[in-house]
């Protein structure tokens, strides 16, 4: 969540005000620093406590067991597929929300962002009533020979559902702060809307899009509640890493902790990548925009 909020100013909000002369004002009161330190500690301490519990000699065998690797592989594959789906659906949504003007726009935004605040279990139940065998669309899908229940597709749907708002929020913020001046200029020069989008808008907001992509990927990796409720849990098919951790905890706490660290490591790498762009560079940062994926 902090990454989500933090990514907005970095991706170009600063540009609007033009370049500030010298260093920006940063008179932070001391008591704010104390509270900030407490906040940082609150996040770091549990991680440290977990690392302290790791059984290091057993770590490699635990995380490289067959169920663990199956879960990790499934998590990476489904998160990649879900992120692609998020881009496909989320980029148009963000464009419509940021650039469009139509009645019910605020309402639409609230609904798109709803999964952010919804407990994932609720999302899973909602998906069940939509795509489940007895669900709104599920029945017709089943007639068409498509079965989503208990399939990897169900995992992808669950992850997309919870991760989509992350992409939309990041990108919409970037679009709004980038403004539409360049687009307007391109249009007056005769560029068609699709050309403007491809040649002007998207390159401009690429950093925002990249951080949105990484955040939604991270959210997909961590998805648990909706998957458990909607997709089930079967090794190699629907049992992603968080579900495997939850199950291992029943019998083998050491394995659960080891797998948790693995998930934390992957998440740290992903979130770290989304922060790699130096924030204070300010003007011009929008153009240099290699999405840090490798």
């Amino acid at each position: 969540m902090t990454g989500l909020l933090g990514s907005r100013p970095g991706s170009g909000a600063r540009r609007r005000g033009g370049s500030t002369a010298g260093r920006p004002y940063s008179g932070i009161p001391a008591w704010i620093i104390v509270l900030a330190a407490a906040g940082a500690l609150f996040g770091l301490l549990p991680l440290a406590a977990m690392v302290a519990r790791i059984n290091w000699p057993q770590f490699i065998p635990l995380v490289s067991s067959e169920p663990s690797l199956a879960a990790l592989g499934l998590s990476l594959r489904t998160a990649a597929a879900s992120t692609a789906l998020c881009v496909l659906l989320g980029v148009p949504l963000a464009l419509v929300l940021a650039r469009g003007r139509f009645p019910g726009q605020r309402l639409l935004r609230s609904f798109v962002l709803l999964p952010l605040v919804l407990p994932p279990v609720v999302g899973g139940i909602a998906l069940l009533y939509t795509f489940g065998r007895q669900g709104l669309l599920g029945r017709s899908l089943e007639v068409a020979g498509i079965q989503i229940a208990f399939s990897t597709a169900a995992v992808v749907l669950a992850q997309t559902f919870v991760a989509l708002p992350f992409l939309v929020v990041s990108l919409e913020g970037a679009l709004r702060s980038a403004g539409s001046r360049y687009e307007a200029v391109a249009a007056t020069l005769g560029a068609r809307p699709t050309t403007v989008l491809r040649r002007v808008t998207l390159p401009l907001v690429l950093p925002g899009l990249a951080s949105g992509v990484l955040l939604s990927f991270a959210r997909c990796l961590g998805e648990f509640g909706a998957t458990l409720t909607f997709a089930g849990s079967l090794q190699g098919v629907t049992r992603t890493l968080p579900l495997e951790i939850y199950l291992q905890r029943e019998t083998d706490a050491a394995a659960a902790v080891a797998l948790s660290l693995l998930l934390v490591a992957v998440a740290v790498i992903v979130v770290g990548l989304s922060y790699r762009r130096p924030g204070p560079a300010g003007p011009g940062s929008a153009g240099r925009a290699e999405p840090a994926r490798s």
Binding site: G232, S233, L234, L243, L247
Partner: peptide, 11 residues
Amino acid sequence: KPVSEESSVAD
């Protein structure tokens, strides 16, 4: 050949 192996009987 179960389609899912849940972590609790309630599930």
